[in-house]
Design a binder for these strands. Structure first.
Lengths: 193, 193
DNA sequence: CGCCGAGTTGAACTGAATCAAGAAACGTGG
DNA sequence: CCACGTTTCTTGATTCAGTTCAACTCGGCG
């Protein structure tokens, strides 16, 4: 149940077996069935989740009842509502499982403990936060400058594994287009090459 | 030249006159004329700028030569390319002045010194970073769920002062629509009320 | 005064949404 | 393991929000 996290810390943070035993203790293993919620709008987000295996998503629902996906998370990804987690304000997002999934939860306290337990770890997580912000900015510029087809190609390049395994309508929701349009784009691209 | 920053730290961080004298020493005052660059694509971002007065913007230019505005900054706002600043990678953004402006620059080293000089300050800036991320996420969901008119109204509510003083075509660029469309939206809204 | 950039307005066009109908894939229980 | 209902995807016809292109107005400034 900790295999993915262990590999992750070993490869990305460069941590020893011993150090990992300590890190491991900060996490709470949980299983989520498909469609099960990790967080619902209005709740305060208590945990950041590391995905051991499976697939989750965070999304909002607008006044028309439409879902808008903010983020996907598969193996080796983190997902949470950081804003709610850090401020204690109720979240405006839902997080649920798109597949039966195993996740490792870490709360704010343990996160701080983990961060403070090692310089390497702190640096790594600061870096991660920075990369995340840069990714949000890239996504914004993609909305400013790209057509639907370009956004899809961009996503294919950045997250091929996610495009492969997530249902088309969810990809469409993430890109801000309709499933019909994405289906046509796909057909068009397939025909091209 | 430090009046705005002083008021900012006094009101938002709750800092005394004495403490401010220390904070002040970390900043480098600079003036920028309209159209002058604070950062250009390909350069490494060395400073975060606090706007004493005037107005700046950060933006990208796509392959068609179109500008896409990521952020505006007026009095009391911060602007920089955090990613470039922290990683040392060349920036993909331009930052320039939309009006003659006075800014206070702080580099990474002095930022760290400032942060470490007081718990209040550290907490405040962490909070600021969080709010910033939440704002980026809201902007993403605005692209996913809103029409051009809704985005404009949203912006009017969130940043009325910026909408007032920045030329229409820049607002349009920020919203990801054409100046013509924004002009029509404006006309339509004016006619409505 | 005359030029120039910024904004407005109109007409035609287009990328993507909507509406609707089928086809394919999926999984759940018998 | 099949059958049936559900969900997901595709395809077509139509509509619409927003773009593009072009002409015109207005205010500032040399």
């Amino acid at each position: 149940m900790y295999a993915t996290l262990k590999k992750y810390f070993s490869e990305k943070v460069g941590i020893t077996e011993n150090e990992f035993e300590n890190v491991k203790s900060f996490f709470l293993p949980r299983k989520f069935k498909r469609r099960q919620f990790l967080l619902q709008k209005g709740q305060v987000c208590k945990y950041t989740a590391f995905v051991e295996n499976g697939c989750l998503r965070s999304y909002t629902i607008d006044d028309m009842g439409e879902e808008h996906i903010l983020q996907f998370a598969i193996e080796n990804w983190w997902i949470s509502d950081q804003h709610s987690l850090l401020t204690g304000e109720p979240s405006s997002y839902f997080i649920d499982a798109l597949e039966d999934s195993e996740v490792l939860l870490i709360d704010k306290q343990n996160y701080d403990k983990m961060i403070n337990s090692s310089n390497k770890i702190e640096q790594f997580f600061n870096q991660l936060t920075q990369n995340n912000r840069a990714a949000l900015e890239r996504r914004i510029t993609s909305f400013l400058s790209m057509t639907a087809e370009e956004k899809y190609i961009f996503m294919l390049e950045k997250y091929p594994d996610i495009v492969q395994r997530v249902p088309l309508r969810h990809i469409a929701s993430y890109l801000g287009i309709t499933p019909e349009s994405l289906s046509r784009i796909r057909g068009h691209l397939a025909h091209k090459n």
